[in-house]
Write a protein that binds this DNA or RNA. Structure first.
Lengths: 224, 224
DNA sequence: ATGAACACTTTGATTATTCAAAATAAATAT
DNA sequence: ATATTTATTTTGAATAATCAAAGTGTTCAT
């Protein structure tokens, strides 16, 4: 049965889910990474993960790492769904800036009931992505998987559409907004310079913008 | 500084505030009552209240009871404000039934930031009462005090307006709704029978409704 | 007054979550 | 291979919040 419902558990599950997505390939996620994401010391993560494993929410191999079980993944997707629907609501109906809604949603995701969530979802017209372009897990059924690649791996001359921003830090999002790098925007790759560690892009007739590769790594795009 | 910010502390403060309102007169509220309201055993309330007293949030006299300090009251009013604005939002914008929003708000009141609260408040047009007629404490300044008396203390023949429902239990609210006893409704007192422990009221041409005095006690009215 | 009743407080434990620091294992470099 | 570094786990302890049950003070009725 387990305390699938505590804020703490939900956070561990949610973070693990996201770490699995990134470095995917069915390899377990090292607990140090999980500890970082959750914001606890490594020792704490070890303790907690062992408990979640006992609850059937994670599969844990000492010294190697952890993975979500199907049961744990279901919970994680629920949390992510709440998070992203709340974010969408905050932007679309309360007019908050997209750079600040992540933090708000971190708290609200644990306080919104199924019923309220459904109403929000309906009010928003059953959105499939949040303001940062991240997919909103459906209430039932599998998550749709959209093929995207990071802006850092594009070639000069290509025309692509911004799909999703992977970094939720307000500073990063504020910058992206300023540059016009928001989901559904068409962008032309002006130059990719591995040596200078930079990508230069251009939106319409705006003045070109240059980003470091680390930043460009966190901007996912799809072909026009 | 104290942990004014934990959900638990906020609940104790909020409940104490409400108990003070009822049996007011600057007399301390017995901890047994507070324990009941918060939903903990008496021993727990004693432990907690001593801590809050140490934090300057309550004034505590052993064996007599507790009262909020001005500082504690400020926190309590903030919680109440969040609770009631959230309730109003849930009813007016998400279409939840007024009988169920109290429970939802019990959780959300601890998750809504100042910024989100302000936006909700603006979206709702700065309401002064929640769906049950309870006053919403203003962001700054004193709470307005409206003179009302319980329906149980009315006399036959009087015409009064329903102002506020004091009981938040879904069952009670559902009943009140069915009978039409919702805020701002005009009601005529048909009969008050102390012996039968009942009050009979009539709304417009509807068929008269009879309530026990205990229920009528929880319905506050004002003169037409 | 005198002893029940009742309300409140104390005590001793428990659960959930966390940290710091010591111990251990694995990976890397020399 | 051996030593060093790095990552992970263990251990011991702390904090917040709670309960059950025993203890104590008050009040009330006789």
């Amino acid at each position: 049965m387990a305390r699938t419902q505590t804020t703490t558990a939900q956070n561990y599950l949610k973070e693990l889910y996201q770490l699995q997505q990134r470095s995917d390939g069915h390899a377990p996620v090292p607990l140090g990474q999980l500890a970082d994401s959750v914001g606890v010391t490594p020792g704490t993560a070890t303790t907690m993960v062992k408990r979640f494993a006992g609850d059937g929410l994670m599969r844990y191999t000492p010294r190697r790492g952890a993975r979500l079980t199907p049961k744990g993944e279901k919970v994680a997707l629920g949390v992510l769904r709440r998070h992203r629907i709340v974010e969408t609501f905050l932007v679309q109906h309360l007019g908050l800036d997209w750079s600040e809604v992540h933090e708000e949603a971190e708290v609200l995701e644990h306080a919104v009931s199924e019923k309220v969530l459904d109403r929000l979802d309906a009010l928003l017209g059953h959105p499939t992505t949040d303001p940062h372009g991240s997919p909103i897990p459906p209430a039932h059924g599998k998550m749709q998987r959209v093929a995207m690649r990071p802006l850092s791996r594009c070639k000069a001359g290509q025309r692509v559409t911004i799909g999703r921003l992977l970094d939720t830090a307000p500073g990063f999002l504020k910058l992206a907004e300023t540059l016009g790098l928001v989901p559904d925007t068409q962008v032309r790759i002006v130059e990719v310079n591995e040596d200078a560690d930079a990508v230069t892009v251009r939106i319409g007739r705006r003045k070109p913008a240059t980003l470091g590769l680390a930043a460009a790594d966190k901007i996912m795009v799809s072909n026009d």
